[in-house]
Design a protein around this nucleic acid. Structure first.
Length: 569
DNA sequence: CCGCCCGGCGCG
DNA sequence: AAAGCGCGCCGGGCGG
């Protein structure tokens, strides 16, 4: 247990596995890293602290890593909302911890970008002092004890969520190896050489001229959607918006250069040269990962768009000399998770082997792989029209258990109810306006418009809860996967080879996690540890499946690639 | 001038 | 004009 004490020092208390607390120790901030290092060496406790994002960056900067923690902020967020929690009342009424449920922490990227001092991570989030931490930990233990058999799943979820907080901080500390040179080369190839600041790259200027010529307009502001729309319509192109999926339907000489222009404009704005200047230092990109930042339990990110790096820039992810990447992604994670949680044997069998969609085609449900994909995504997202609307009912016949689970989740959501993931992360209730809308539609004075608005809101929320249980369970599977993998990698020997100067912590001197994207990890590994890291990923995949779903016959198929650039496919 | 919303598009 | 979930970020445009 770690917390601040009056006067600005640090207080620490040993917490036994039975929850018994020992004598408090008082430390100065400077003495903290050595204290934590010593505790790790002697008995590797599970550190209980207010907020990993508060405590860990400074420790990592000092070269200290911790094996396990219990993150009170993240765990409060789960327990205070979970339908699995027996008695939530004491947590819900703990006012000072409410932010943990209401708003995920988004660190200020500018404040913490290259300076991982503890002071900078000290944002107003949840209480960081020792008495508050002790009180909250006691509430959380009591909440778990009141949860009966569901407590087992919640405990797994809390451990996985807390491990995710460690991984997020460690990955930020390590950074993603990134070649600014390769990035610049890719940009120049697409856009032309870097222009003076404020100027458009030559590639975009040339396309703009072609677009103006084709539309018969001079001085068009292509970047202004209203002006562009007006110009398109003026040229006889009957569109309602300027989005690419609508433009692509029309035949006109302006369309091709316009679509190309939009691609380049996006690349320049989101990941152009100023992105490199802002986010890449010493061959490292250091995004802020936000564990639990999405209601479903997925991570969010803040700063540089870490979870939206375009595929075409993947070649800029470049391992250090003497190192390589081991990249792995899970094929069709979400449908596999759905098969497991619903106990749908037929769907599980379709997923035996690499490609679940091919298995669905073999089952005879649909004629082609593309149809299988549309049908499965449609089932999980709640599509009712188009190809998906036609294909989903076939799935309902062949995989009744899987479909029943998501259909029930949707029905619950349409009524304003709450659904939960496999391990017990629960969906937020609709806001009061939603219930107002439903009540108004039920009233005697309700108009047809009231009823249709209410029905639409109801369906919208049903699609949200339908997807919530699958996306959320996939997210906790991924957390369990990474948590297991992280501890396997931590047992690798430290490499004796040369290392880039950016390295600070011990975990960076062996194979370590460098990137995570929902169903995909990238490990940065010394060349001689790459094969072992690949094995660790495969072992972690099996372990995560067992931890969540026991002996259910579901396979989680992996694509593993070893190489110095982290390209996919 | 600032904050906010929104269209649009990148990722899963 | 998206059908069909979850995000973050950008620039334009608007209201204050």
């Amino acid at each position: 247990m770690l917390g601040t004490v009056a006067g600005g020092g640090i207080g620490a208390v040993d917490v036994g596995s039975d929850g018994a607390t020992g004598e408090p120790v008082e430390l100065t901030l400077d003495a903290l890293p050595d204290y934590v290092r010593a505790q790790e060496a002697s008995h590797a406790p599970r550190w209980v602290w207010s907020d990993s994002a508060h405590w860990l960056p400074g420790l990592l900067t000092s070269g200290v890593t911790v094996a396990r923690c219990h993150d009170l902020r993240l765990c409060h967020g789960i327990l205070a909302r979970s339908a699995y929690t027996g008695d939530r009342a004491p947590l819900v009424t703990a006012e000072e911890w409410r932010r943990a449920v209401e708003e995920p922490v988004v660190a200020s990227p500018t404040a913490t970008l290259f300076d991982l001092e503890i002071e900078h991570a000290d944002r107003a989030t949840v209480p960081a002092d020792l008495p508050a931490a002790l009180a909250e930990f006691a509430r959380q233990r009591a909440a778990l004890d009141s949860s009966g058999a569901d407590g087992r799943r919640l405990r797994i979820l809390l451990a996985a969520e807390s491990a995710g907080a460690l991984i997020a901080a460690e990955m930020r500390s390590a950074g993603l190896p990134w070649s600014a040179e390769e990035h610049d080369r890719l940009l120049s190839e697409a856009l032309g050489p870097r222009p003076a600041s404020g100027m458009k790259p030559a590639g975009m200027v040339a396309l703009a001229e072609r677009i103006e010529g084709a539309l018969g307009v001079r001085g068009l502001s292509i970047d202004s959607a209203p002006k562009l729309l007006q110009a398109l319509r003026g040229a006889g192109i009957d569109v309602q918006s300027t989005s690419q999926w609508e433009l692509i339907e029309h035949e006109h000489p302006a369309i091709a250069p316009l679509l190309q222009y939009k691609k380049l404009a996006r690349l320049l704005a989101a990941n152009g040269w100023s992105w490199i200047d802002e986010w890449v230092r010493n061959d490292r990109y250091r995004p802020v990962y936000v564990p639990g930042g999405v209601v479903t339990g997925r991570w969010a990110s803040s700063g540089g768009g870490a979870l939206q790096i375009p595929r075409r820039l993947r070649p800029a992810i470049r391992a250090d000399a003497g190192w390589t990447f081991v990249s792995a992604d899970v094929a069709q994670l979400e449908p596999r998770v759905l098969a497991a949680m619903s106990g749908d044997r037929a769907m599980a069998i379709a997923g035996q082997g690499k490609d679940l969609y091919a298995g669905i085609v073999e089952s005879g449900a649909v004629p082609s792989r593309q149809d299988a994909k549309i049908a499965v995504l449609g089932a999980m997202y709640g599509s009712t029209s188009g190809d998906a609307g036609r294909l989903v009912p076939r799935l309902r016949r062949i995989y009744p258990h899987a479909m029943r689970l998501v259909d029930d989740a949707a029905a619950t959501g349409e009524r304003g109810g709450i659904v939960s993931t496999w391990l017990g992360r629960s969906s937020p209730a609709p806001d009061p306006e939603w219930f107002d809308l439903q009540a108004r539609a039920q009233a005697n004075a309700a108009t047809a418009a009231d009823e249709s608005r209410a029905r639409r809101a109801s369906r919208d929320h049903g699609r949200f809860t339908r997807n919530f249980i699958v996306q959320g369970t996939a997210a906790e599977w991924a957390l369990a996967w990474m948590a297991d993998l992280r501890l396997r990698l931590a047992r690798f020997p430290e490499t004796s080879g040369d290392r880039a100067p950016a390295s600070g912590s011990a975990f960076e001197r062996r194979a370590h996690l460098a990137f995570f994207l929902h169903d995909e990890v990238i490990i940065h590994a010394p060349l001689d540890q790459a094969e072992a890291a690949a094995t660790a990923i495969r072992d972690a995949t099996a372990a995560a499946g067992r931890l969540l779903f026991g002996d259910a016959p579901v396979e989680f198929a992996l694509d593993v690639v070893i190489g110095r650039t982290a390209t996919k496919e």
